[in-house]
């Protein structure tokens, strides 16, 4: 192993068959290193979400092993599984915030994995936690909304709250499953910029599923192409030419796979 390079996520012969027989992942072998900004692309149904959600075990895989920073998450359970999950922040297409709670409470909910049930239920977060939450909100520029209810924010603001939640979690890995799919082009740029800044400034390993090829080319350091549950392309962003994308998609690129000149 080269000095200074750490394997953060490792897939070893991972396969996933859904109960209805659909093969979501077929014998995946993959290593992601610290600080990478990986974008996963592929047609709808290619298995991008399945891949991403296997990393923190929101999906169970049926074969193989996934290792997170040296610990096998597929063999963990109970407290040790939660300990691994604590280091992995997740950002969803639909934000998944508790709409009736304040922004601050949503961000603080990223901290519960660090404390006892009793303490969190009583709302006794230590001051450092609250400061961490404020810093996270500051970093995504919505500090002034801390005491606003989440359902009173725009989509872009809500997505930034969920990024703040992952930051407050002090996650070492951030997984984002189509984080911008329900946002307009301008907001998309803000959110992607936030993700890139966090990746570069804090060195958080980031794995993002995206539909838009040009976004992938703009933000990724490494691109993984999937088709029918298999990895059909894996390489640095420079190698991912339009021709390669056509290969991943099995056909020429279409207009709706480009965000276009709007950004």
């Amino acid at each position: 192993m080269k000095v200074g390079i750490q394997k953060v996520i490792e897939f070893k012969n991972v396969s996933k068959t859904y109960p209805n027989g659909v093969k979501g992942l077929k014998n995946i072998n993959l290593t992601i290193e610290k600080g990478e900004f990986v974008v996963v692309v592929g047609l709808s149904g290619a298995g991008k979400s399945t891949l991403l959600r296997s990393i923190n075990r929101l999906n169970e895989v049926t074969e193989g092993e996934i290792v997170i920073a040296g610990k096998s998450i597929t063999n963990s359970s109970g407290a040790s599984l939660r300990r691994i999950r604590r280091d992995i922040g997740m950002i969803f297409q639909s934000f998944n915030l508790v709409k009736r709670s304040t922004v601050l409470r949503n961000v603080l909910s990223g901290r519960v994995g660090y404390h006892s049930t009793f303490r969190t239920v009583l709302g006794l977060f230590p001051n450092e936690d609250v400061n961490l939450a404020f810093e996270a909100l500051e970093r995504v520029n919505i500090l002034d909304k801390a005491y606003t209810r989440a359902d009173q924010l725009s989509g872009g603001q809500q997505q930034r709250v969920s990024i703040a939640r992952a930051l407050a979690q002090e996650a070492k890995i951030i997984l984002a499953d189509e984080p911008v799919a329900s946002l307009d082009p301008l907001t998309t740029k803000h959110v992607m910029d936030d993700l890139r800044r966090i990746n570069q400034e804090l060195g958080i390993t980031t794995v993002v599923n995206l539909h838009h090829v040009d976004l992938a080319q703009e933000y990724a350091t490494r691109i993984i192409g999937m088709r029918a549950g298999e990895i059909v392309f894996d390489g640095p962003v420079e190698e991912a030419t339009d021709d390669k994308f056509s290969e991943i998609y099995g056909r020429p690129l279409q207009n709706n796979e480009l965000l276009g000149a709007t950004v």
């Binding site: 404020f134 810093e135 500051e138 970093r139 500090l143 002034d144 801390a146 930051l167 804090l202």
Partner: peptide
Amino acid sequence: MMNQPIKTSIP
């Protein structure tokens, strides 16, 4: 990790 000072005032 995140030790940069908070610029805007906390509400």
